[in-house]
Design a protein around this nucleic acid. Structure first.
Length: 535
RNA sequence: CUCCUUAUCGCUUAACUGGAUAAAGCAGUCCCCUCCUAAGGGAUAGCUCAAGGUUCGAGUCCUUGUGGGGAGACCA
């Protein structure tokens, strides 16, 4: 909708312009401050320019009025325009708010180590990523969601050791001494028992079989992780295993050397990448003296592999603590001969939880972390998704669990669902057939219904804006505001049994469509009926 | 010490990326079961960390300072 108006005005005025929604709807549907920017070059007062521009519009199909107010140019869309758009959307619900972007994007997120279930910190990245994914898909991008599994390196050995120790203590009643760092948590119970069945107890005492145990366990842990994700409606298309990448190391090193002979060099018996020359703080080790590659080596091969797969754009969602890691990866990409600006790294900040205003107590049995599955159990996947999607991802987040358990207006997810359910109830109470409703002409709606209709049809802009700015929270914000408009309208205007029933219900259909589409983009299924649970 | 990031009502967050009177929810005070579910609707009070700068116009951009968070590994 905004697209069309914007294109129309560009044509009319012959220049780019900022089109915005006025804060106060009485000013019209859209507005532009263009007169201010023209003031300087035309050497005229903005007010006069705006007046002249407004006058130049005259009668038009799309606008019912064009007014100049204090230098702003305000547009009011015609009923025809709105009505046609609404009918189109209702007849093509699956096309609504869709576009054809035709860009291939690879989105990598979560990528948590396969050493334990996902905790609450991962949840934020997971939901942020999955929501971006849904938005992009809807906008027509060819986007793939990828999980990078770090199944090589020390943490995997540590997993093997942790299971051994856990099993010896809990299954075999031995007294064991734990090293400084090891994994703990309830999930080790299951893993220990399964391991005992599969390998026999000997494996818990045999240090040389630690690796064997770990390689089995990480796959088991991945099953837990995938289930955690599925329970939150988070979807992945592809999984890449770090352990499979190192075979390619020699070739990738060669590739970097071809681009720049100085990219990789040997010093002190180690192999280094000359990342300092590419804006990193210093050069980094990629292969240690004993020949073991560092984590960075794996990432270099991984990113080479990504770029060889030929996407046009790459998005990585990392935790904020990986911030300093960006320059060295970008340096490697440059040495590989690719454009590092194609890689976009989004950082998701830390999360801290409150419950009844107090910091949320972490379960001892879970080993000092808050599991994502615990939260899902506590407040439900919908609420969790809503919370994480509704905050800017680049600020540290603090939220109170108990607030999301309440079933009233303080809980935004219920508030939005209730709006959708109310509309469904109206439709079921109405004696009109859906054909009769669809045929209704949206004329003379009155200001309230007109405003509501317009608000409902803003979804496409919101979706595009949310994705382009990578600010997913714009969607829940919009849905909440739309739900509020609906509730107010519902309270003010009676619809069933009035002469305007058909056209008002048609407006309701548009609102419901936007709510449902918006919710589904957040991975939440719209409810047709609210059932109040007794607590 | 260096770099990055952040700062908005009492609390959690918005603000169309430089635009009109800074907006929601919670918490507070007060009202409304009138007919489509009160899981709702209203009323009221309250905010841009500090000091400069850029310009028609700044919460948004620049400088300095202050307070949070993060990074400164041959850990991942």
């Amino acid at each position: 909708m905004k697209e069309r108006v914007s294109a129309l005005l560009r044509e009319k005025l012959g220049r780019e312009l900022v089109l915005e929604k006025p804060r106060d709807r009485s000013f019209g549907h859209f507005a532009t401050p263009i007169a201010f920017s023209l003031a300087k070059e035309l050497r005229k007062s903005p007010m006069i320019i705006a007046d002249e521009l407004a006058a130049s519009f005259g009668e038009s199909e799309e606008f019912s009025s064009v007014e100049a107010v204090k230098g702003y140019l305000n547009f009011r869309l015609s009923e025809n325009f709105l009505s046609e758009y609404a009918s189109w959307a209702l007849e093509n619900p699956s096309e609504y708010a869709k576009q054809e972007k035709n860009q291939k994007i690879l989105l990598e997120f979560v990528s948590a180590n396969p050493t334990g279930p996902l905790h609450i910190g991962h949840a934020r990245g997971a939901i942020y990523g999955d929501t971006l994914y849904r938005l992009a898909k809807h906008l027509g991008y060819e986007i793939d969601a990828e999980y990078y599994i770090n199944d090589a390196g020390n943490q995997i050995d540590l997993l093997g050791l942790s299971i051994q120790l856990h099993a010896r203590e809990n299954l075999l009643d031995e007294t064991v001494e734990y090293p400084e760092s090891y994994y703990r948590g309830e999930y080790l119970d299951g893993l220990s028992r399964d391991a005992m069945e599969k390998f026999g107890v000997e494996i818990f005492h045999d240090e040389s079989r630690q690796r064997e145990l770990a390689m089995w366990a990480k796959d088991e842990v991945m099953k837990i992780i995938v289930k955690d994700l599925a329970d939150t409606n988070v979807h992945f298309d592809t999984f890449v295993y770090e352990s499979t990448l190192y075979d390619d190391w020699d070739r990738v090193m060669q590739k970097m050397a071809t681009t720049d002979a100085g990219a990789i060099y040997e010093k002190d018996g180690k192999t280094w990448i000359a990342s300092e020359a590419k804006d990193d703080e210093k050069d980094r080790v990629v292969v240690r003296e004993d020949g073991r590659p560092t984590y960075l080596a794996g990432d270099i091969v991984y990113h080479n592999q990504k770029f060889e797969r030929g996407y046009e754009h790459y998005i990585n969602i990392w935790g904020a603590d990986h911030h300093g890691y960006i320059p060295r990866v970008k340096a490697a990409i440059e040495y590989l001969g690719y454009d590092s600006s194609k890689l976009e790294v989004l950082l998701s900040q830390m999360v801290s939880l409150l419950k009844d205003g107090e910091p949320y107590k972490m379960s001892k049995r879970a080993g000092n972390v808050i599991l994502m599955s615990d939260i899902v159990e506590e407040i439900g996947a919908d609420a969790l998704r809503y919370i994480f999607a509704s905050k800017k991802s680049d600020t540290a987040l603090e939220f109170d669990l108990s607030e999301f358990k309440k079933q009233d207006s303080s809980n935004p997810i219920f508030y939005i669902q209730y709006a959708h359910a109310r509309i469904q109830t109206l439709l079921s109470k109405s004696t009109l057939s859906s054909e009769e409703i669809m045929c209704a002409d949206l004329k003379n709606l009155g200001d309230n219904a007109d405003t509501l209709l317009f608000d409902a049809m803003l979804l496409p802009e919101v979706v595009e804006d949310a994705f382009n700015s990578r600010q997913v929270q714009k969607l829940p914000d919009y849905l909440k505001a739309l739900a509020a408009s609906l509730h107010k309208f519902y309270y003010d205007v009676r619809m069933i049994g009035t002469p305007d029933e058909a056209k008002l219900l048609k407006v309701m259909l548009v609102v419901a469509l936007s709510l449902k589409t918006g919710l589904s983009l957040m991975g939440i299924v719209a409810k047709d009926k609210m059932v109040k649970e007794e607590i």
